[in-house]
Design a protein around this nucleic acid. Structure first.
Length: 476
RNA sequence: GGCGCGGUAGCCAAGUGGUAAGGCCGGGCUCUGCAAAAGCCCCAUGCGUCGGUUCAAUUCCGACCCGCGCCUCCA
């Protein structure tokens, strides 16, 4: 059974299959603009793309995952200037921070992570092709614009009414949509190349039309062409990129190469909300991974939360939701430990299930896998996992081995990690001493003393958890 | 106005033409000197509102009410 996914362009659920004659599934994802810290909304998108890639790989497809870094645009240039840094130094700093977050979240490293600046020749070449083919024109100031009316099926992704394109000279706020692009022939035309302006500082490159810098949309067209070819299998991004970014990408790419069918499948995910509100800096409800970690949450827990809603619907992020992740993951760990013991496996075996003869089986997690493959239903998949976890009854060693293998694979597809080592908490000597004395009192059945010592521990902000053969001390 | 998405228990969130997965919280029980942990059990006659189709609708259709997104550089 292939992975089925909703496609924005056809508005249908369609199977993700290798094209005849091809061996690799090409997947292009719009990456971050590196001008500041990525927030958890950005990571909802990247995490879902990661789950899609993992799911395809578990399903047996060989995937080539390309995710770009946008390191030249208005925001990066402004940010670099405000920071008194070169554009390169500025974007490298934010790129490094982005990568650190990606690692923490367990995002698989893309096979190619192209940067826009490193692909300026390819962008210039594509713009030249568009000019040559009559799909773009050079304005008086040396900027180059894409001629939307030259593209017969412009708007097919978002199902625009072409007759109304011209009326979009104003945006929803009633403001003119012309920005600095006053040389355009039509309000719906968009910039491919922006002529050099004083505020760009040192950030300009030569071109047949004079010095300047690329427009926003062209980078993804050029980089996808360079690394995946004129047509490829899937293109992903946040729902907001649908228009104009992806619409323009299709127009540019198909007009420049003359080949239709730019991306066979469009994968868009809805946005993350925070406490039912749109997440935004002005609302003050914008979270980063670093901020959540400062509150004591882990990246693995954030990942659990981010896949807790279906990708096509908005997900309401709450701190309460973050708090629910830890006990839920702990429940999975306890269950996995029990099954591991029944199966005669260790936790190390769980991390590398492919080494077992049962690697092709899913055990009782076959339904969870089926649900995941059906339009990447991550919350449904999690629900099914817990349904199995909640089942009672005898489990044979053979069944346990199959279950363990199935669970390991499904969690690998989701990217949820069990048994993350927790940093050892340093227990102050005085607290450790109190604990030892209480344990001794308890062993001596001096319960009055034991209770008194427990109270002292509580007063000091610690709690003591008794086991059969010892005790743990934890801060309250 | 155009193109979309959503409204399901205290919170989060799946799903289905035949009367609602799961997680968290909460409650009960078992087990423990105490406490906790753990295990077990319970927790929506109802799925925004009003109509319609149907033997049967939360699920299909229509209208309406809310919330959200995009409509030229926001994942």
């Amino acid at each position: 059974m292939p992975v089925i996914l909703h496609d924005t362009l056809s508005r249908e659920k369609r199977p993700l299959l290798l094209k005849p004659g091809r061996e690799v599934f090409g997947m292009y994802c719009c990456g971050p603009t590196v001008y500041g810290p990525a927030h958890i909304g950005n990571f909802r998108t990247f995490t879902l793309q990661d789950v899609l890639r993992r799911t395809l790989e578990v399903a047996g497809l060989k995937v080539k995952h390309v995710r770009n870094i946008t390191d030249v645009d208005d925001k990066t240039i402004r940010g670099a200037q405000a920071a008194g840094q070169t554009l390169g130094a500025f974007t490298q700093g934010w790129t490094d921070k982005f990568h650190a977050d990606c690692r923490a979240l367990g995002l698989l490293v893309p096979h190619v992570e192209p940067s826009a600046i490193e692909h300026i020749p390819q962008q210039v070449a594509m713009i030249q092709a568009l000019v040559d083919r009559g799909h773009a024109y050079v304005a008086k100031d040396g900027s180059v614009y894409f001629k939307v009316c030259s593209c017969a099926d412009y708007g097919k992704l978002t199902h625009l009414d072409r007759s109304k394109l011209e009326t979009q000279a104003k945006n929803s706020a009633g403001e003119a949509n012309d920005a600095d692009e006053y040389e355009r022939e039509s309000a719906s035309d968009f910039a491919l190349w922006k002529s050099r302006k004083p505020e760009d500082g040192a950030n300009f490159w030569p071109s047949p039309w004079g010095e300047g810098r690329p427009g926003w949309h062209i980078e993804c067209s050029a980089m996808s062409l360079a690394h995946l070819g004129a047509t490829f299998d899937l293109h992903g991004g946040g729902i907001d990129l649908c228009f104009p970014h992806h619409e323009n990408e299709i127009a540019q790419s198909e007009c420049a190469t003359g080949v239709k069918g730019y991306a066979a499948h469009w994968f868009h995910n809805a946005h993350l909300m925070v406490d039912g509100e749109k997440m935004s800096k002005s609302e003050g409800n914008l979270y980063t991974l670093l901020q959540l970690e400062a509150k004591g949450f882990t990246a693995n827990e954030l990942r659990y939360v981010l896949i807790g809603g279906h990708y096509r619907g908005p997900l309401n992020f709450t701190l309460a939701g973050m708090e629910a992740a830890r006990p839920a993951i702990a429940k999975l760990e306890r269950w996995a430990d029990r099954l591991l013991a029944l199966a005669g496996f260790s936790r190390a075996d769980f991390a590398a299930p492919s080494s077992h003869e049962v690697q092709t089986t899913w055990g009782r997690f076959a339904p969870a896998w089926d649900i995941l493959q059906e339009d990447l239903n991550t919350p449904g998949c999690l629900g099914q996992i817990f349904t199995v976890v909640g089942e009672n009854g005898e489990v044979s060693p053979h069944q346990a081995r199959e279950d363990v293998c199935g669970l390991a694979k499904i969690l690998h597809a989701l990217g949820i990690v069990l048994f993350v080592p927790k940093p050892e908490l340093g227990v102050p000597a005085a607290i450790a001493d109190l604990g030892a004395r209480r344990w001794a009192a308890k062993q001596a059945k001096d319960f009055a003393a034991a209770d008194r010592l427990r109270q002292e521990l509580t007063a000091a902000g610690w709690t003591m958890l008794d086991r059969k053969d010892g005790f743990d001390l934890r801060p309250l």
